[in-house]
């Protein structure tokens, strides 16, 4: 599969939240305002690209040669939960801006379904190293896109009157559903036309 194909497919057609439904818990909590969603989305995007590359390395250097492919879930989650605190440390040392607010996101990312999900998907689809890196970044970008769009919708809805039982979580779920419906416009045919 070509590189552009992977990106378009994971950001729009098979968006990890809206189409593959690998949601992860912070989806409902974090989309309260756009700024938080955007920063969480970017952290997740960077880390999922990194984790995807790292798990590719782990699988092809260690697990497959030793015939331990069945340990992939366990090994991947161990690697991810080890890698995220490490990135936290590196970011704290290297980033010029204070990242106190971003710090709180790291534990959430390490236990996020989407990160483990895309690592497993890219290993099971037999991607190469570069393809895994791109897949991780694209899935993260798709997650970020969905978060930011939903947060924007929620901010716009604060001005509207909403029936009482729907306030809070239900209306968010319904809006996510309508957004998923809109994302169905990006289908396989669109992808094929783009690639030809």
């Amino acid at each position: 599969m070509s590189y552009i194909g992977i990106i378009v497919s994971l950001v729009f057609v098979n968006n990890i939240v809206l189409s593959q439904l690998i949601v992860g818990q912070p989806f409902l909590d974090i989309t309260r305002d756009t700024k938080t969603s955007l920063s969480f989305g970017l952290v997740l995007c960077a880390l999922s690209a990194l984790c995807c590359l790292a798990t590719w390395g782990l699988y092809h250097a260690l697990l497959r040669p030793l015939g331990l492919g069945y340990l992939q879930t366990l090994a991947f989650i161990m690697l991810i939960s080890g890698l995220t605190p490490l990135c936290d440390l590196v970011f704290a040392k290297t980033l010029p801006v204070p990242h106190g607010r971003l710090r709180a996101f790291f534990p959430l990312v390490s236990t996020n379904c989407a990160v483990l999900g895309i690592c497993l998907i890219s290993v099971r689809s037999g991607y190469t190293a570069l393809e895994s890196l791109l897949a991780g970044a694209a899935a993260g970008a798709g997650y970020c896109l969905a978060l930011v769009l939903l947060a924007t919708m929620r901010e716009a809805m604060k001005k509207e009157w909403i029936p009482r039982p729907f306030r809070g979580v239900p209306i968010t779920l319904v809006s996510a559903g309508l957004m998923a419906l809109a994302f169905m416009a990006f289908d396989e045919a669109l992808l094929q036309n783009l690639l030809e």
Partner: peptide, 22 residues
Amino acid sequence: RLVSLSAGTFLVLGYAKAVFDM
């Protein structure tokens, strides 16, 4: 068909939660 698609999942869950809250 909408209900069995991925979009329908969010919708059904949203409505179910609203009914439950009510």
